[in-house]
Nucleic acid binder design. Structure first.
Length: 274
DNA sequence: CCCGGAACCTGAAGGC
DNA sequence: TGCCTTCAGGTTCCGG
C-alpha cells in the first residue's frame, strides 16, 4: 500500500473505531516482523494497553497508548484491516497474508496484511525512537518551498531518489514521486543542485498537489491496498504517468516512458519533463 | 557526509 | 505444464 495518502486514509478511517479501545492480545504469525522488543514482549506489553490516539508520521502508523506507542510500517504492499465485533463473532476469517491479528476489548480486530513480510511493528516507550529520523511532513504548514530548498541545497544526487529519501521529506514513495515530478515538469534524473529556485517552488507545489489528489481519491489501489473496511481507493484510475508507459501523456499526448532508475521503475513524459 | 548498489522477503506475471 | 527471470507501492546496510 503505503505511501502518505494510503497510510493517512487508513489512519483517518480507523480513528473513530479504535480510539478509546484497549488491546487484549495479539497473534504474531511472522515473529521476525516484530522489530521491538520481541514477540513475547509485544504480547505481554500490549495486553491491557489503551489506545489514546492514532496518527500518521511519514508512512508509519502510530498508535499512541496510555503508556508508550505501537508503531507499524507496511513497507511494500499490504493494508491494515478492521473487523467489527459482529463480523468477528460470525467467524469472518482474516484475508490471505495476514501477519498480525490484534484483538481489541470490544471484540473487534485489527489485521495487518503484508504479503512480502517486509513490514514491521514496534512497541516502544517513545515513538520518536522509530520515526525520529524522518524529515518534514509535506502537507504540514511548516513545509514551505524554502524548507524544501534548504533540504535539497548542496545535494548532487538526482531529484527522484532524494524525494524517496524519508529524511529529506517524509511520506513520498515511488508513485507520488513520479506524479509530482510530472506535475512540476522536471525529469527524474535532474541533479537537485541543478534545479532553479522557481523549479524547486514548482516542485513543492506539485508534491502537495500529487499527495492531496491521492488523499482525495482515498489512495492508489494497484495491487493490495485496501482501506480498513476492505474497499479500494481510486487514484489508480487518475494517474498521469505512473505505470502508464506506452500510453499518451495527458498533457501533450507523447507516449509516457518507463525506465529503470536507481532500481526503481520510473515513469515520465519525455516532452513535458525537462 | 554523500552516493549507489545489494539485501531483505514473497508472490505474480511473462518468456521460452 | 513447468522452469526461469523480472518486477513489485520501502528501508537499511555496506563499500567507495
Amino acid at each position: 500500500m503505503p505511501e502518505l495518502p494510503e497510510v493517512e486514509t487508513t489512519v483517518m478511517d480507523l480513528q473513530p473505531h479504535v480510539v478509546g479501545r484497549s488491546f487484549v492480545d495479539v497473534e504474531v504469525r511472522v515473529p521476525r516482523m516484530v522489530r521491538a522488543p520481541d514477540p513475547e514482549g509485544l504480547r505481554r506489553g500490549l495486553g491491557g494497553r489503551r489506545i489514546a490516539g492514532i496518527r500518521r508520521r511519514g508512512k508509519y502508523i502510530v498508535f499512541c497508548l496510555d503508556r508508550g506507542a505501537l508503531v507499524a510500517h507496511l513497507m511494500m504492499g499490504g493494508a491494515l484491516r478492521w473487523s467489527p465485533s459482529t463480523a468477528v463473532e460470525k467467524g469472518e476469517a482474516p484475508p490471505a497474508y495476514t501477519r498480525f491479528r490484534f484483538r481489541l476489548d470490544d471484540g473487534s480486530e485489527l489485521w495487518l496484511v503484508n504479503p512480502r513480510t517486509l513490514g514491521g511493528v514496534w512497541l516502544v516507550e517513545d515513538p520518536e525512537q522509530v520515526v525520529g529520523h524522518l524529515g518534514p511532513e509535506p502537507l504540514a504548514p511548516e513545509f514551505t518551498p524554502e524548507v524544501l530548498a534548504t533540504r535539497l541545497k548542496g545535494r548532487a544526487a538526482p531529484i527522484k531518489p532524494l524525494l524517496l529519501d524519508q529524511s529529506v521529506v517524509a511520506g513520498i514513495g515511488n508513485i507520488y514521486a513520479d506524479e509530482a515530478l510530472f506535475l512540476a515538469g522536471i525529469r527524474p534524473d535532474r541533479a537537485a543542485s541543478d534545479l532553479s529556485a522557481e523549479e524547486v517552488r514548482d516542485l513543492h507545489g506539485s508534491i502537495q498537489a500529487a499527495l492531496r489528489k491521492g488523499l482525495a481519491l482515498r489512495g492508489t489501489s494497484l495491487g493490495d491496498f485496501f482501506d480498513p473496511f476492505g474497499e479500494t481507493g481510486s487514484h489508480q484510475l487518475e494517474l498521469n504517468v505512473f505505470r502508464r508507459q506506452g500510453q499518451p501523456c495527458p498533457r501533450c499526448g507523447t507516449l509516457v516512458q518507463r525506465t529503470m532508475f536507481r532500481g526503481r521503475g520510473t515513469h515520465f513524459c519525455p516532452l513535458c519533463q525537462r
